[in-house]
Computed example of a mutant assay.
Amino acid sequence: MSGERTPAPGDLAWVEALVNTLSVDTGEDRLAREFGLSGPALAEATELREGLRAACRAHAGHPVAPGALEDLNALLATAPLTVRIGPDGAATLAPAAPAGEPTLLARVASAVAGAAADGTWPRLKACAAPDCQWAYYDRSPAGRGRWCVMSVCGARAKMRTYRAAARTT
């Protein structure tokens, strides 16, 4: 469903893109290619992505697999972060990168912490369609969006409900 919605704000867009490296309906997984990962780093990134998808599902009120958020919390607890004070005196968590580029885990942890602080984290959700689960940023005024794209996943869900009701009458 990519490209149908405006991406999440700030660094949360990067987290949204990470979650959406797997197309649940087709099984296409672009994580290794898009992030240049292999071996143990790819396994950790896959666990991170699926933990983030579980958090997005929780934000949307969908059931989450037992232990999924605990696994995500355990991963995030190992993220190398540092506190930075900006020119305005505000403190933020930032990825620590003593040897160059910050790790994927640190970038995600920093983005999630920033989004939690500014109130945008709960609006990163997963589509209600079981065969989609695409991450999207809910920009609806009440924050009650259910589908990544109403004209696709929402229309399919409404049509299934309509057909089921028609069969029972």
Rank of each mutant, 00 (worst) to 15 (best):
A96I: 05
P98A: 04
E34W: 14
V152T: 09
E34F: 08
A41V: 07
G36W: 04
A60L: 06
G114Y: 05
R160Y: 01
R84N: 10
A126W: 00
S110W: 02
G10T: 06
A74N: 05
R139A: 12
A155I: 08
W14S: 10
S38A: 11
L18C: 10
A41K: 14
T26Q: 11
T168F: 07
A90W: 06
S110L: 09
S110V: 07
M159V: 15
T78R: 11
R163K: 15
T21K: 04
G119V: 15
S2H: 08
G154L: 07
A96C: 10
R30D: 01
G36A: 11
K125E: 04
L72E: 05
A109Q: 09
L22A: 06
P141R: 12
E47C: 03
A97M: 06
L81M: 08
P87K: 15
M159C: 06
A17G: 15
D11F: 14
A54V: 00
L93T: 09
P9K: 03
R30N: 01
A90D: 05
G154K: 09
E70H: 13
W14A: 06
C56N: 04
A41L: 14
L42M: 08
A90G: 02
Q133P: 00
G154Y: 03
D29E: 13
S151Q: 10
R144V: 12
M150W: 01
A155H: 03
D131S: 14
E44M: 12
A142Y: 02
T161G: 14
R57P: 01
A65M: 03
A65Y: 01
W134T: 03
R156Q: 06
T6K: 15
V149I: 05
G67C: 07
T78F: 03
A13R: 08
T21M: 13
C153P: 01
S23P: 00
V15D: 11
A115N: 04
R5T: 05
V149S: 09
G39N: 07
L18I: 07
T26R: 03
A8F: 12
A155K: 10
L104M: 11
D88C: 09
P7C: 04
D88M: 02
A106Y: 05
L75G: 03
W14G: 14
A55I: 00
R163M: 13
V149F: 04
A74G: 11
T82A: 11
R156C: 07
D88T: 15
V24S: 00
P7W: 05
V83H: 02
G100S: 12
C148R: 08
N20M: 12
R163T: 09
A54M: 06
H62S: 13
P63A: 07
A55V: 02
R160A: 13
V149M: 08
R49W: 00
R139M: 08
M1K: 00
C148D: 02
S23D: 12
W121N: 05
A58P: 02
R33Y: 05
T120P: 13
T46N: 06
A94C: 04
V108E: 05
A115Q: 13
P87Q: 15
R57I: 01
V112R: 12
A116T: 05
E70A: 15
A157H: 13
